[in-house]
Measured scan of single mutants.
Amino acid sequence: NRRVIAMPSVRKYAREKGVDIRLVQGTGKNGRVLKEDIDAWLAG
């Protein structure tokens, strides 16, 4: 149960899109989840 590193704005964006942020692979520094990662996850 790893802790997800993401800015609050990215967490909010994921919530609005209905994405469980824990399932998204972060590509930022130290595995940080970026807004682009959410978009990529939604695109498949």
Rank of each mutant, 00 (worst) to 15 (best):
N1D: 15
N1L: 04
N1V: 15
N1Y: 01
N1H: 10
N1E: 15
R2I: 13
R2P: 13
R2N: 14
R3T: 14
R3Q: 14
R3S: 11
R3D: 13
V4L: 08
V4T: 08
V4S: 06
V4W: 03
I5D: 08
I5V: 14
I5E: 09
I5G: 05
A6Q: 04
A6E: 03
A6F: 02
A6Y: 02
A6K: 03
M7S: 15
M7T: 15
M7A: 15
M7W: 15
P8E: 10
P8N: 11
P8Y: 05
P8D: 10
S9V: 09
S9F: 07
S9E: 13
V10C: 06
V10N: 03
V10D: 04
V10A: 06
R11A: 05
R11H: 11
R11Q: 08
R11N: 04
R11M: 08
K12L: 09
K12F: 08
K12P: 01
Y13R: 06
Y13Q: 06
Y13L: 05
Y13M: 04
Y13G: 04
Y13H: 11
Y13D: 05
A14T: 02
A14E: 00
R15E: 11
R15T: 12
R15A: 14
R15S: 12
R15P: 01
R15K: 15
E16T: 12
E16V: 11
E16P: 00
E16Q: 13
K17F: 08
G18V: 04
G18K: 09
V19E: 01
V19T: 03
D20N: 10
D20T: 04
D20S: 06
I21W: 06
I21F: 04
I21S: 01
R22A: 09
R22P: 02
L23Y: 13
L23R: 12
L23P: 02
L23W: 11
V24P: 03
V24L: 08
V24M: 06
V24Y: 01
Q25N: 13
Q25G: 09
Q25I: 14
Q25E: 13
G26I: 02
G26W: 02
T27A: 04
T27G: 05
G28K: 02
G28Q: 03
G28W: 01
G28S: 04
G28I: 02
G28V: 02
K29P: 12
K29N: 10
K29D: 10
K29V: 12
N30L: 11
G31N: 09
G31L: 05
G31D: 06
G31E: 06
R32P: 02
R32V: 08
R32Y: 09
R32D: 07
R32S: 12
L34S: 10
L34N: 08
L34V: 11
L34F: 08
L34R: 11
K35V: 10
K35I: 11
K35H: 09
K35N: 07
K35R: 14
E36L: 11
E36K: 15
D37V: 00
D37G: 01
D37N: 06
I38D: 00
I38F: 00
I38E: 00
I38A: 00
I38T: 00
I38R: 00
I38Q: 00
D39S: 04
D39M: 05
D39F: 04
D39L: 06
A40S: 13
A40N: 14
A40D: 12
A40T: 13
W41N: 03
W41D: 03
W41P: 01
W41A: 05
L42D: 04
L42F: 08
L42N: 05
A43H: 11
A43T: 13
A43D: 13
A43G: 11
A43P: 05
A43S: 13
G44A: 15
G44M: 15
G44L: 14
G44P: 08
